[in-house]
Design a binder for these strands. Sequence first.
DNA 1: GAATCATAAC
DNA 2: GAATCATAAC
Lengths: 275, 275
Amino acid sequence: MAHETSKDAITEDEIAGTAPTASSSASPARNAFSALMAPKRKAAPPSPKPAKKKYNKDMRDGLDDYILHPETYSSSRVIYYGSAFVAINDLYPKSSVHTLLLPRTEHKDMHPFDAFDDPAFLAAVREQVKKLRHIVGKELQSRYGPYSKQDIPREKVLNGEVEPAEDGVLPVGRDWDKEVMAGIHAHPSMNHLHVHVLSVDRYSECLKHRKHYNSFATEFFVPIEDFPLAKDDERRHGHDLKQDMKCWRCGMNFGNKFAKLKEHLAEEFKEWRKE
Amino acid sequence: MAHETSKDAITEDEIAGTAPTASSSASPARNAFSALMAPKRKAAPPSPKPAKKKYNKDMRDGLDDYILHPETYSSSRVIYYGSAFVAINDLYPKSSVHTLLLPRTEHKDMHPFDAFDDPAFLAAVREQVKKLRHIVGKELQSRYGPYSKQDIPREKVLNGEVEPAEDGVLPVGRDWDKEVMAGIHAHPSMNHLHVHVLSVDRYSECLKHRKHYNSFATEFFVPIEDFPLAKDDERRHGHDLKQDMKCWRCGMNFGNKFAKLKEHLAEEFKEWRKE
DNA sequence: GAATCATAAC
DNA sequence: GAATCATAAC
């Protein structure tokens, strides 16, 4: 079950939570002002490069190719893979770091509520989640450590401002793994079973409307720790993604004011980094 | 006509092209993970602070208060003001730096096409535009000089890597004023006459749909240099904000693919900075 | 799922 | 003008 190929590289760009695909064609530098209104260049490329995408007849099968051909993806997309699991960066991250754990085994097509009734499978997933959580945690430390109060002693050693300990071990610093949440959606949008493993910030350009937010900020999101789910657990059925939006960090209620929430999340993100 | 009060400060936050109002209430730092789903805090603030906003019965009069009471605004909003003009930072910037020049004189309620038929008024506006353009240019230099090829010699002196010249004058560097566009919309959205003075990048979170982009990237935007407008100038009438979106810098046609354009603009922004 | 478009209500 | 909501077409 374990024994995954080690390919942990997460590149800045892909995981940045900015634009999904960066089809970068460095355009010839022209004087911006002279080109202002009507670019006089003769043959401008007629349309944006089609983002090289795999064809799926059902959009709900968008994750299938990752478990079928994980080796065909860049290390910025597929974080690691093994015989039983593939870990990827979400194509449309809803937090600044947002990964998915995809099982390659027979449980993959089941609803997670049912799949996690199998204790062996659940145990295997938990092990992978722990691993992936740590990868995400290290990424957070790498990005936000320089802003973190708890990481100051560690950063000082890293910066050479303070001598390392005799044993060469860095100060531990902030427990970034604790800033990572892992779970599944009560009503998954993709057929293939996927566990979301993401930073708690919910700070991303790809988070664009209420359902995006609430699917990671209400009971719609079921933490992996809560499985196996009781038969009468309410989350097996009802879910209301149209409910008021509330800040994950301070609880402030934004009603249906998504734009206001987004502003607020940017502020909370900066405060959160500082902890 | 001239002789404006000098209040040129443009603060990072306000002009950043990010969120409009930053109502920052530093929330008590809680453990993010423990607070994940259901903040247990007793009395969470019930709703976001209403952004202290002046009431206007007609939304098209949103600029009036700036000329009536420019002194009541922070220096991050009102850049400078005098007896005849007020310069402000646009509340919803469509470029990384986006300012507005507002006349306080009798021409203020006319359509700019007509107002600029008055040579004296046009001359006064031109003078102000030149001033404001330079303020914007200096802001661009301050922000993006460190990324600019043409500004390398200047930056090296600023960084102390190279000795200043004997006369103490910095290398001139990039002509950032040339990266600023100034003009008016063929069909202004606000009643009060306003001249847009903005960086050419059109890189801003507030740029959210096709009409936003095209209103600053087609003939809908009439440069101040083009006035007075000929009686038969086509721009006096037709305008099509629904036309295909084309990159201001390389001319690439994005059709109606706004999301793709946005990605591209982010790339072009970085290339543009480097010039 | 993403994304474009049209439409109220402010 | 901004912003929420609903709705095709992919």
